[in-house]
Design a binder for these strands. Structure first.
Length: 338
DNA sequence: TCTGGGGTCCTAGGACCC
DNA sequence: TCTGGGGTCCTAGGACCC
């Protein structure tokens, strides 16, 4: 299940006069500032505006669009409503972020179940979604894209190659631009070519885990497991891109302490202690580097987390102007004892 | 077109140990 | 005189996703 233009749809719900207009949500809503598009409505997409596009560029491509600030709390609340409704249908449900979930259903007529899901979510929240049906997670996930907007699409082992065989490898879930380019260097351009590739050759280039996984993915094979287990995060982080680069290192230290304070509140919410703190610095030329500091013992104490963040920051020797700072707290692996 | 924020998982290299 | 092979842990970076 994948909600259609989720963030834009939530904004349109609370401002119905926006329906049918190009709407762009991102940053603090000011397209003159640093920031990127979180979601664009379908009308804005027709002008070439899409997620990840700099807001400035979006304004140039679609000057008549309505620009809105990103309102995390509103999207979290709307997402909770959707997922609660979805779980109410009684299927095993695994939530994947704000706007997606896997639902495990073994049915003779999966399209009927898909339509049931759509109607149920629409009745509960007024939001539209697409439902992809597959014989595993990979197929179902890719099928949602073919169902958009508000539709249903089914992929199977039999239709995998007719539908996807000729598409570039980057169309697959888990293969991005970098991997697509590396595969091209091996002479592998399409999904069908990836499926037929020599696993040893691909493993030689991508390693013993990712190599075989890539070929399996090209074949449309993957996990069928859907877990309703409550999710335990591995880390919590906060980061900020400054409107003006920070040139003064004492200001950098100040900001790291502030971020550490926010992260501490997030850690306390988890009721699990942090074991490590990592600081991220993106310098003005858009080069990013990270350094970490292990905590002496697991803790949720703000003073100790801030001190660890400063210790991690101390490992940076480059004093170029800073564009972004981030602080991340890591938890112990929740499944280590299993 | 000057490129957010919040995450996850895998890999490679160095330290260290036997 | 400088050297094997196996294993684990930690750290930083890379890639991807929503």
């Amino acid at each position: 299940m994948d909600l259609d233009q989720f963030i834009a749809a939530v904004e349109i719900l609370r401002r119905p006069e926006l329906r049918g207009l190009p709407v762009v949500v991102g940053g603090d809503g000011d397209p003159a500032k640093r920031g990127v598009v979180a979601t664009a409505s379908y009308e804005a997409r027709q002008h070439g505006v899409h997620s990840g596009l700099p807001m400035r560029t979006a304004a140039r491509r679609c000057p008549d669009a309505v620009f809105l600030p990103s309102d995390r709390a509103a999207y979290e609340a709307a997402s909770d409503e959707v997922m609660t409704a979805l779980r109410g249908l009684g299927y095993v449900t695994e939530v994947m972020g704000w706007d997606e979930a896997f639902v495990a259903v073994d049915a003779d007529d999966p399209e009927a179940v898909a339509r049931q899901i759509q109607q149920h979510i629409r009745a509960a929240t007024e939001l539209d979604c697409s439902v992809g049906i597959g014989q595993n997670r990979l197929q179902a996930k890719l099928a949602t894209d073919f169902g958009k907007p508000a539709g249903v699409f089914r992929l199977t082992h039999d239709s995998w190659f007719p539908v996807l065989g000729g598409k570039p490898t980057g169309a697959l879930w888990g293969i991005g631009g970098k991997t697509e380019r590396k595969l091209s260097e091996l002479g592998i351009h399409t999904v069908a070519e990836l499926a037929a590739a020599d696993i040893a050759v691909v493993a030689g280039r991508f390693g013993p885990t990712i190599g075989p996984w890539l070929v399996q993915t090209g074949r449309g094979l993957g996990s069928t497991e859907v877990s309703a287990e409550p999710y335990l995060p591995r880390s919590r982080s906060r980061e900020i891109t400054f409107q003006q680069n920070l040139a003064d290192w004492s200001q950098v230290r100040e900001q790291v302490v502030l971020l550490a304070g926010q992260v501490t509140r997030d850690v306390e919410e988890e009721h699990r202690p942090a074991i490590r703190v990592v600081v991220k610095v993106r310098y003005a030329p858009f080069f990013t580097s990270t350094h970490g500091h292990a905590l002496a013992e697991p803790t949720s104490d703000g003073e100790l987390i801030a001190a660890a963040a400063l210790a991690a920051l101390g490992k940076f020797t480059d004093r170029r102007p800073v564009r972004l700072l981030g602080v991340r707290a890591e938890f112990a692996d929740p499944y280590e004892d299993r």
